[in-house]
Nucleic acid binder design. Structure first.
Lengths: 234, 234
DNA sequence: CGGGCGCGGATTGTATAAAGTTTCGCCTGT
DNA sequence: ACAGGCGAAACTTTATACAATCCGCGCCCG
């Protein structure tokens, strides 16, 4: 008998129906197809995925716990709308955690992982070249997640998944221009450092990469979508 | 995860019935009254709190997301049983995050907060003096949580709540002797550093405090409770 | 003509019932 | 006496029905 099989609630079977819903909605948010503030009706989603409200409800609750969905009592679920303060916290947390993650990744990177990283960079390049902004923004986030998987640190991975999802919303809300979400070149440099197992350099590159992303945001406190007056008067 | 009630009360919980369940179970786990592996039947809990299984279920799902409850498909919910590998990850994450938290706490500590910290230390001392191990272990965890609240960093707070709960289980499973869970003196020194707004010292104290806690654990990979054979043969 | 009030539709929150799965006891056959 | 399988009970999972709440709209009154 297999005693060790522990289906962790964080990584349930992909065949699970509630996971399908959760991942579908998450993907839509990460690809910037669902905008902050969008109402996520239970019946609506249930019809799309052919599931009952019970399952939709648990999926939405999980997403709410991850911080990318806001549930208001008796009003329903909405795509979250992070405030500038939230944004600063998210990026501070990423600047703290991700250097440690690449550090571990340098130790844990097997040839198979390095190969996967290389293929991922190629995918990112391809998406950017063909101008597929949605795929580009999704792949950009998935790069960071992939590094966290390589690190083998499941807690950091869990935290980072949450931070990445929120970052996607933040970038959508607060970026200055139409700058590409994440410089692919930075990612490539990080991979090179990992390949050389140069931990110090990998940490530095990751830190400056995150700093640069945040620098391209406009985090004024009364920025878009917080005060309706600003919209009307603007 | 935060259910926002728009019109009035900012209380994020306590009035909500599912929150009452969640906090009740959490408190029981933090006080070491619920041991790892304990079955948490839905009917059982529902009867205790006078709630239907629907509400119990959502509470258990939230706890599963926090990592202190494990849900096995078609088998039910159990108090989580962290492995030694989990334990190392938890403490590594705490050593990374908590120094940053005290850093912020030094900046954010108002007189009211400092007063609250002082009273908390007194409570810890009192519990330890009267030999109330359950209260002592709970208050010990709550100290770290209180510091995180003072920091004003809601993301760090959320992460740390999770880490503290898991730490409580880890200490219960893997501590060497009957050492008191957390040196109260350490906490008092940290408060002193915060009061002086000595960020560097506060960080150092927190880091060494966490290192010492982990050093008192016995994290051999086949340690207690992983293999049932060990129990039978022991 | 403007603002408050209340009713109807819609949506969420909760409970309960039906369906599926696992577990454990018991029974039979060897 | 023991191994193996059948079956019932208990539990979780899923679906559905019911109750509570909120939003929008029209009506009435000032």
């Amino acid at each position: 008998m297999v005693v060790k099989t522990r289906p962790k609630s964080d990584t349930p079977d992909a065949s699970d129906r509630v996971s399908r819903i959760r991942e579908g909605v998450t993907a839509a948010i990460l690809e910037h197809r669902l905008l902050p503030g969008t109402k996520l009706g239970e019946d609506e989603i249930g019809e799309i995925y052919g599931a009952s409200r019970t399952l939709v409800r648990t999926a939405l609750q999980q997403l709410a716990h991850e911080g990318i969905v806001t549930i208001e009592k008796n009003r329903g679920a909405f795509v979250a709308r992070p405030t500038p303060a939230d944004a600063r916290e998210v990026f501070e947390a990423r600047r703290l955690i991700e250097p440690s993650i690449v550090d571990h990744a340098c130790d844990n990177a097997t040839p198979a992982w390095l190969d996967r990283l290389g293929r991922h960079i190629a995918e990112e390049r391809a998406a950017e070249l063909r101008g597929d902004a949605r795929a580009a923004v999704r792949l950009s986030g998935e790069f960071h997640r992939l590094v966290a998987e390589i690190s083998g640190h499941s807690i950091y991975l869990g935290f980072l998944k949450e931070l990445i999802a929120r970052s996607s919303l933040i970038i959508l809300l607060y970026r200055r221009h139409n700058t590409p979400a994440c410089g692919t070149d930075h990612h490539a440099e990080i991979v090179t450092a990992i390949r050389k197992r140069d931990r110090a350099r990998a940490r530095d590159l990751m830190l400056s990469h995150l700093t640069e992303i945040e620098a391209e945001l406009f985090l004024k406190d009364e920025a878009a979508g917080e005060l309706p007056l600003a919209d009307v008067l603007g």
